[in-house]
Amino acid sequence: MGELEQKFAAAFLTEGRWILYFKGLGVTLGIAVLAAILGVIFGTVLGIMKLSFREDGKKTLWNILATAYVDVIRGTPSVLQLLIMWFIVFATWNNGVAVASISFGLNSAAYVSEIVRGGILAVDVGQMEAGRSLGLSKAMTMRYIILPQALKNMVPPLGNEFITLLKETAIVGYVSLTDLTRAANQIASRTYEAFMPLIGTAVIYFVVIKILTLLLGVLERRLRESDQR
């Protein structure tokens, strides 16, 4: 046990190494939150675009554009998207967190758009018909009848997406950002002991995501309060 304690001390305590994990966790959460905000906003727009059809049932230009975007994003690895953003698109922009947030946000938007689309499609088509027959416009029915119901459908998969996003940020070390995973790597490259930093970091991720899961559960229950089931 003495050896384990020593390794623990070397990996977390000496030279204030815990600060590095803390800062790393800050970067991880910062990127994840910013990316999620961008992803939800842009993803909702994309999702609605993917639902627009012409009178004759064919796809509108908006729909085609959004579909193409989602195809490209889902068809390429996110680490590659990050590298392209860092070394090519924003080659001279030095704000790593911002570039990573944009990169992950644009990536997440593609997945969110499918969640939004699925959430809206899951609301019975009769709801739209009912709204229209009551004299509401298409937009008003969407805003006051469809979307509130769709939102409840979207919360679980959106929570899922955020958790995935949070863990996916572990690749930002590729562009020299020090997130939680990179902090662990950096410390392992000093102490030459991979065990403690890696297991410790896994525990930190797990705890953060567990807390997040609990919060999402609370949110879901609140949203379901009005349901008569």
Partner: peptide
């Protein structure tokens, strides 16, 4: 200090002024 996986990435960012 920016720590890269590869030396060439560091040089790339030097060329880009990062």
């Amino acid at each position: 200090v920016s720590r890269y996986n590869k030396g060439v990435d560091a040089v790339n960012d030097l060329l880009n002024g990062k």
